[in-house]
Simulated assay, not measured.
Amino acid sequence: MLLLKLMKRVALILPEPARTNMRDSVEVGWEIAHLARPGPIALRLALCPRRRILTYPDVPSRYQALYKLCAVNGYRIVKDPEKPHDLAFHFQYQLQPCELPLSKPTVNRGCGDVSKRRVAEVFEEIFGYKLAISPTLFEGLMVEKPNGNHTFDGRVLQGPIKPDDIMPDRVYERHIDTADNEEAVDLRTVIYGQEIPIVYEKRRPKSGGLKDNTFAKIRDPEEVFSSTERSALLAFSEKLQLDYGELDVLRDVNDNRIYVVDVNNTPAGPPKQMSDADIAEALKILSPSFERLLERVEER
């Protein structure tokens, strides 16, 4: 912490842009202090970052995996596309196509549409069975949820429903029963290029909301999914042109099939329900795959 305080004082006498770089690096150090040694991280980011990564048009917050991965690996995040950078991330919370020039090596360049409808279409194409249903014909439990990204207000309905009850901005999918001892289980699956470096098993009360997770732990992808399932998940991600992101995968206890119900190309994490030690371990596991992803994008 003394090094961070010293760097903050040094920043006061530096000219721009060195002053801003130093201040930003100190801020990253403070934010990552519970996971890694903040002084060396801040100093490396300020003086000799291993890479400069543009995130555009949005910037990851301290809650997001990209922020943490860049910090612990010595990558400086650049916010302005006019400033020097080595590669870019199409990082946008809204469902919009990438606006960066084709000349720039860009992660997730083609992954603008991760709407629920698009996810369900690609899922059926790759896996060969359906997630989406016709709400006026389907008999049984169904899920109604917004089509857009970063939404958590889905609800479970009993089908079929009346045509007048259909909402055009919502999608309707079969309800996936993942219950294990009255807990719903989400297999949050990390995708970096053509690798699945880690899976987070997340649990919440069966009666709770989508954000009410009470437990999370690291799982080995090979223990969670068969080789056929892992291949299908990677083929699914490739079809969506998802270089970097996370999939919400549910395994139905009735038919033992897996279903990809959501895709996030600006993921938060690692899960806050884990201890700091486990989050640091997750970042350690993720970093080699993240590095290989960046190398592949730079070679495009």
Rank of each mutant, 00 (worst) to 15 (best):
M7E: 08
Y129G: 01
I258N: 09
T55H: 04
I166F: 09
K5E: 15
V224F: 04
P101N: 05
S227M: 05
K116P: 05
E124R: 14
P221L: 06
E295N: 06
L141P: 13
D24C: 06
L54N: 08
E229F: 02
T55Q: 09
V190W: 11
G128P: 05
V10Q: 12
R109E: 02
L95K: 00
N108L: 00
C70E: 04
E229G: 03
A120E: 07
G193K: 01
R219S: 12
D220A: 10
A42K: 01
F138T: 05
F236Y: 14
E82V: 05
L6N: 07
V119A: 11
R51H: 11
Q273P: 00
M142I: 06
A184E: 14
K202I: 13
I258D: 11
R117I: 12
K202Y: 01
V199K: 01
T189Y: 08
E195R: 15
G128F: 02
E223H: 10
A33W: 06
E139S: 15
D164S: 14
T189F: 08
D86C: 00
F138Q: 01
E125D: 15
L242F: 06
S25G: 06
T136K: 00
V59D: 02
A235I: 00
G74M: 01
T189G: 07
P267W: 06
I191L: 02
A268V: 12
R62K: 12
K239D: 07
L283P: 04
R44D: 06
N265I: 13
P101S: 03
F290N: 01
V249D: 12
G148I: 13
P271T: 06
K145M: 09
K8I: 01
R51P: 00
H90S: 02
R109S: 08
R170S: 11
R37Q: 13
S115M: 00
G154C: 08
R296Y: 00
G110M: 04
R257W: 05
G110E: 09
D80H: 03
H85T: 04
I196H: 06
H175F: 15
V107S: 02
A36D: 14
G110K: 05
G112R: 00
K202V: 12
R174V: 11
R292A: 06
R117N: 13
A235G: 11
E82I: 02
P38D: 08
I126P: 10
D177N: 14
S227F: 05
R9L: 14
P101E: 04
P205E: 10
D220I: 10
V59Q: 11
Y172Q: 06
P160W: 10
M274G: 07
G154W: 10
E291G: 00
E238M: 01
E246C: 15
A36M: 10
D186Q: 05
K145D: 11
G128V: 05
G110P: 03
I161Q: 04
E183H: 13
L12M: 03
G159R: 03
I166K: 06
V253D: 02
